[in-house]
């Protein structure tokens, strides 16, 4: 009650100013708003009943059904294949770009280079998707090359800025003194990178790789437009099922996907905190 009345009385306490009691309540409500729908989905994926409202009994039957479903298995394999390859390429590219944009003296065009690396973040995904589709349709015709490589290429492009962010953050937090010391001891550029910079940078690289993996694994719009026939990823499969109607199998697959994401992001968060 004391809290409530303080809302109406001009505050006298400095701590009160800092706390804004109304904001505390709102924050918890926002947290509820963010998590309640996901919680409902996750809880009812373990429901024996088809319903997502009436709880009957705990059961893993929808998980069994999902894992036995050939379409789900195939699309999951494609998703992992695309995500792993795109992650590998984008992380290497992002690491190189981060080294060039944070190490050494400032040079002309450095901020332009940084902006270009982040370009995929500045444009609505649907625009990137149709532009990529238009470009790839020309390239496919000209080269006659088809296959999943195009999809992997498209994923690599939008994964680069996500991998770049944590790597760059880690790199700009790292002191250059170790690298300078290595150079003083006549280490070549490559030796300095291999034995000094890279080991120190590793948590950032891992964090970047995991974010890239998650972003690739979750992508819908670009995949929807760019993927050729037979290149259905898991989210595209899920979207198709949702359009047809709600099925408990989709709840189970979604829960698995949420679990994978949470595990990876939690690990990333942990890796980034360790640097402090």
């Amino acid at each position: 009650m004391a809290k409530l009345s303080s809302l109406f009385r001009p505050s006298t306490d400095a701590r009160e100013l800092r706390r804004q009691p109304l904001f505390t309540g709102m924050s918890w409500l926002v947290l509820l708003f963010l998590y309640a729908p996901i919680a409902v989905l996750v809880v009812f994926s373990f429901n024996d009943n088809r319903s997502v409202v009436r709880w009957t009994e705990f059961s893993l039957r929808w998980y069994t059904a999902a894992l036995e479903n050939d379409d789900i298995r195939r699309s999951a394999m494609i998703s992992v294949q695309v995500a792993l390859t795109a992650t590998m390429f984008s992380t290497i590219i992002a690491t190189m770009a981060a080294l060039a944009t944070t190490r050494g003296s400032v040079y002309r065009g450095r901020s332009a280079a940084t902006a270009l690396i982040n370009q995929p973040l500045m444009i609505p995904e649907i625009v990137t998707a149709i532009a990529t589709l238009a470009f790839f349709s020309i390239l496919r015709q000209l080269t006659g090359v088809t296959g999943i490589g195009w999809l992997i290429l498209a994923h690599t492009v939008f994964c680069v800025p996500f991998a770049y962010m944590p790597i760059r953050a880690r790199l700009s937090d790292m002191s250059v003194t170790y690298e300078a010391a290595a150079a003083d001891l006549y280490a070549t550029n490559w030796q300095t990178f291999r034995y000094v910079t890279l080991p120190l940078l590793m948590p950032g690289v891992m964090a970047g790789a995991m974010l890239a993996f998650v972003v690739s694994l979750d992508d819908v719009i670009i995949t929807l437009l760019v993927a050729g026939p037979g290149e259905t990823t898991l989210p595209i499969y899920i979207l198709g099922q949702i359009r047809r109607g709600v099925t408990p199998e989709v709840n189970a697959v979604s829960t698995i996907l949420i679990g994978v994401t949470i595990a990876m992001v939690a690990l990333t968060f942990f890796l980034q905190r360790k640097r402090k």
């Binding site: 729908p37 996901i38 989905l41 979750d218 819908v220 979207l239 709600v246 979604s254 949470i262």
Partner: peptide, 17 residues
Amino acid sequence: LPFWTNLLIRTYSMLLI
């Protein structure tokens, strides 16, 4: 965390609600 969670799945969970 929700920001990294699949947008499609989050929207789907909203639909369930």
